[in-house]
Amino acid sequence: MSGVEVRAVSKRYGAASVLDAVDARFPEGRFTSLLGPSGSGKTTLLRIIGGFVAPDGGRVVIGGADVTAVPLWKRRIGMVFQSYALFPHMTVAQNVAYGLNRRGIRGAAARAEVGRALELVHLTGFDARRPKQLSGGQQQRVALARAIVTKPRVLLLDEPLSALDRRLRQNMQIELKRIQRESGLTTIFVTHDQEEALTLSDTVAILDRGRIVQEGAPADIYEHPRTSFAAAFLGDANFFRGTVRGEAIDTPAGPIRIAGALPAPGTAVTVAVRPEKMTLLSAGPDPAGNVIDATLREIIYAGAVSTFLLTGSDGAEIKVLSQNRDLAGPAPGARVRLAWAPAHTVLLAD
């Protein structure tokens, strides 16, 4: 029983509203990401759950008990900070043992726990080192061991991987996922890195300007974004605006069909299409589905994949992501035709 729930939590800093009556549930034993641009309030929400910041209104519930008024040191949460915040005057073992000592666990019992935690993060034998003698990734793992050794009810991670280089970050993502699975801790992870959120999470919650705009499984959120903000923030998207007319949406680029039911004729709507769902057609008959004309402007080659930047017949920019299976392809300036399935056209709410 250590699921986390926030109910109508609000926070203002002076005139600026950072969180606006946010409701969210973080199920027990699950890995939930709070994803949003800077200033979206994701870190503030995390700090409110942890007890570092008091909300102006609303409740925080951990494991069924209201903890809104419980002070930080009594809340039994584990926190990993962006800056790691390791105690520079203590050894690795002393850092990890800190939380145990505060709970009255000392001596051999504490040493055994510290040993187990360091083993979990693959840092056995580093006990006597100082934080300064460790690399960024190792410091990160010490911070993680220190946060989980006390068996907290909730593990809070505040952009813990953002200070690491790309390769190390990918390794740590795998480690983090493994440690979370092995410890079974309810985990809340704050990040602005969409790829990281998709890779690690059981659930992703997208925050925008102090509100949760969409919450769900990574694949669900990616394939079916509800708003244009969610579509643009999580991955890339091509947007088409138009009016419903009969069986299709009439857009400046041409008629576009979707798989589901359309709103009433005459309604103005926006649809989104992911760049990797579109294909550049070679010569031959058009396939069934959506086909539009475009002019190829630029090709950005990136090894395994290439990004094609095109201009639609209405002048709008279109992005297409394609795997480099063939060497030959259209050159910039060529007029091409783009096709995609109606099922890959997402009708947005705004």
Binding site: F52, W73, K74, M79, A85, F87, R102
Partner: peptide
């Protein structure tokens, strides 16, 4: 962050002073 970390690990104000602020 060090003070936040100490508090999140269960240290009250006197403990934060003697174990983190004073040594540093």
């Amino acid at each position: 962050g060090l003070i936040d970390a100490a508090r999140s690990l269960g240290a009250r104000t006197p403990a934060v002073f003697t174990t983190v602020i004073l040594p540093l």
